[in-house]
C-alpha cells in the first residue's frame, strides 16, 4: 500500500472508531422507540440516550466510603476495552489497519476484559446486590462466551482465517451461498448477543427490580460520569454485536475502497441493517417474557448446541472430500 493510502486507512479507522461511540446511543434510542410504538406509547425521542449521557456527565459523582481505587478505575477500563473491541469490527469499510491488530478471538478477549472489571467493580463496594450481579454475570458469560467463540470458529473455519476482514471478504467473494453452518452460527450469535447485552429473556435493561437484575445490579453504586461511562460502554457493546451480526452475515454494501461514495454507501447500508436488527430486537423483547435466572442456562445451552451444530454441519455438509 502506498503511504498516502495507509494514512487514509488509519484516518478512516479512527473515524470509524469515533462513529461507534457516536452511534451507540442512537441504536438504543431506536430500540426504545420501536418498543414504545409496539406498546402503543409514543416513547421518548430518538436522541434521549444522548441527553441522558450528557446529564450524567455533568452531574456530581459519588463514590461509596467502602470503595477501593479499583472502583474508580473500572469505568475507564470497561469503556476503553469495549471501545477498542468495537473499533476492530469493520463498520463501513474493509481493509482497515485496526482489523489487523485484533482478530475475532482478541475481540472476545477484550470483551472479557471489560466484563472482568465490570464484575469486580460490582463486588468492590461490598453490598449484597453487587455480588449477586457479578455472580450472575459470570454465570451467563461463562456459558455465552464459548457459544460465541464456537459460532465465530464456524465462520473462521469456512474462511480459513480468524480475521473479521478475511471472513467478510471471503463471504463477499463467494457470493450468495446457502450455508447451513452460517445459519446455525447466526442463530447462536443472536442468542449470545441477547444474553451478553443483557436483553430481555436473560436480563431486563429497563428495570431495577431487585431480584432479577444482572447488569444493573453491578452498576448500582455508580453515579455521575462513572455511570455515564458504564452505560455508554453497554451501548457500544450492543452496537458492536449488532454490527457483528449485520456485517459478518450480510456483508453486502460495506465499502471496499476508500472513496467517499463507497464509504457513504457503506454507512447507509450498515445503518439500514442496524435499523432492521434494532426493530427485530425490539419486537423480540416485546413478545418475550424475562426468564428466571435458572432458565437462562437452558437458553444458552441452546446457543451452544446451535454453535456446535454449526461446526458439525460445516464439517459434514460443506467440506466433503
Amino acid at each position: 500500500m502506498p503511504d498516502g493510502l495507509v494514512l487514509a486507512a488509519w484516518l478512516i479507522a479512527f473515524a470509524q472508531a469515533l462513529l461507534y461511540v457516536a452511534l451507540a446511543p442512537l441504536l438504543v434510542g431506536w430500540v426504545r422507540k420501536v418498543k414504545a410504538r409496539l406498546q402503543n406509547r409514543r416513547g421518548a425521542s430518538l436522541f434521549q440516550p444522548y441527553a441522558d449521557l450528557r446529564k450524567l456527565l455533568i452531574k456530581e459523582t459519588r463514590v461509596p466510603h467502602t470503595a477501593s481505587p479499583l472502583f474508580r478505575m473500572a469505568p475507564y477500563i470497561v469503556f476503553v476495552a469495549t471501545w477498542l473491541a468495537a473499533a476492530t469490527v469493520p463498520l463501513v469499510a474493509l481493509d482497515l489497519p485496526v482489523a489487523r491488530i485484533a482478530d475475532i478471538i482478541v475481540l472476545v478477549g477484550l470483551l472479557a476484559l471489560a466484563r472482568f472489571f465490570l464484575a469486580l467493580a460490582g463486588m468492590d463496594v461490598g453490598t449484597a446486590f453487587g455480588g449477586m450481579g457479578a455472580s450472575r454475570e459470570m454465570l451467563i458469560s461463562s456459558l455465552a462466551e464459548p457459544a460465541m467463540l464456537m459460532a465465530v470458529f464456524t465462520l473462521a473455519m469456512t474462511a480459513h482465517s480468524t480475521s473479521l476482514e478475511s471472513v467478510m471478504s471471503h463471504h463477499l467473494a463467494d457470493g450468495f451461498v446457502l450455508r447451513p453452518s452460517y445459519l446455525f452460527a447466526l442463530g447462536a450469535l443472536l442468542l449470545v448477543a441477547l444474553a451478553e447485552c443483557g436483553r430481555i429473556p436473560v436480563d431486563n435493561p429497563a428495570t431495577h427490580l431487585e431480584l432479577t437484575m444482572i447488569h444493573e445490579a453491578m452498576l448500582l453504586e455508580y453515579s455521575g460520569r462513572h455511570l455515564a461511562l458504564m452505560e455508554w460502554a453497554a451501548q457500544v457493546k450492543l452496537l458492536l454485536y449488532g454490527v457483528l451480526i449485520a456485517n459478518v452475515f450480510f456483508p453486502w454494501g460495506v465499502g471496499r475502497e476508500f472513496t467517499p461514495l463507497a464509504l457513504g454507501l457503506g454507512l447507509l447500508a450498515v445503518l439500514a441493517k442496524l435499523a432492521l436488527l434494532g426493530a427485530a430486537l425490539a419486537t423480540a423483547e416485546h413478545v418475550m417474557a424475562k426468564m428466571r435466572l435458572f432458565r437462562a442456562p437452558a437458553f444458552l445451552n441452546l446457543a451452544l448446541l446451535l454453535a456446535l451444530l454449526g461446526l458439525l454441519s460445516h464439517v459434514i455438509l460443506e467440506i466433503g472430500a
Binding site: I58, E60, P64, H65, T66, V125, F129, G224
Partner: peptide, 18 residues
C-alpha cells in the same frame, strides 16, 4: 466536567447500611 467526587454511604437499593 466537574471533577468533584463526594464520598457517601453505599446506596444498595436503599436497604440498611450494608
Amino acid at each position: 466536567v466537574p471533577r468533584r467526587i463526594r464520598r457517601s454511604d453505599p446506596w444498595d437499593c436503599g436497604f440498611a447500611p450494608p
